[in-house]
Simulated assay, not measured.
Amino acid sequence: MNNKISITYLILIIAPWFFGCRGTVKEENENASASSVSLHVGNDKYIMIDTKESVLTWKGSNLNGLNTQTGYVYISKGELMVENGQLMGGTVEIDMNTIEDKNHGSDNNLVNHLKDPDFFEVKKFPFATIVITKVASINDENKNVTGNLTIKGITHPVTFPAKMEVKDGIVRANGKLVIDRTLWDVRYKSAKFYDNLANQTMSDSIEFHINIVAKK
Rank of each mutant, 00 (worst) to 15 (best):
T155R: 00
T155N: 02
H156S: 04
H156G: 03
H156V: 04
P157A: 13
P157L: 14
P157S: 15
V158C: 12
V158M: 08
V158P: 13
T159F: 02
T159Y: 01
T159H: 02
T159W: 01
F160S: 08
F160K: 06
F160M: 09
P161D: 07
P161C: 08
A162K: 09
M164T: 14
E165D: 11
E165K: 14
K167F: 12
G169M: 08
I170D: 09
V171Q: 03
R172Q: 14
R172L: 10
R172M: 12
A173T: 12
N174K: 12
N174W: 10
G175K: 08
G175V: 06
K176T: 13
K176N: 09
K176S: 13
K176Q: 07
V178Q: 04
V178R: 02
V178N: 04
I179M: 02
D180L: 02
T182H: 00
T182L: 01
T182G: 03
T182S: 05
L183E: 13
L183D: 13
L183C: 01
W184T: 05
D185I: 04
D185G: 02
V186P: 01
R187N: 15
Y188A: 08
Y188S: 07
K189G: 09
K189T: 06
K189S: 09
S190A: 06
S190I: 02
A191Y: 03
A191K: 15
K192D: 15
K192V: 05
F193W: 08
Y194F: 14
D195Y: 03
D195T: 13
N196I: 05
N196S: 07
N196W: 03
L197P: 03
L197K: 01
L197C: 05
A198E: 12
A198I: 07
A198D: 12
N199C: 08
M202W: 13
M202N: 14
M202Y: 09
S203P: 00
S203G: 13
D204N: 09
S205T: 09
I206S: 03
I206L: 04
E207T: 15
E207G: 01
F208N: 12
F208H: 02
H209N: 10
I210G: 15
I210Y: 07
I210W: 05
N211P: 11
N211C: 08
N211W: 06
N211H: 14
I212W: 05
I212M: 13
I212C: 08
V213P: 00
A214C: 07
K215S: 10
K215I: 15
K216Y: 10
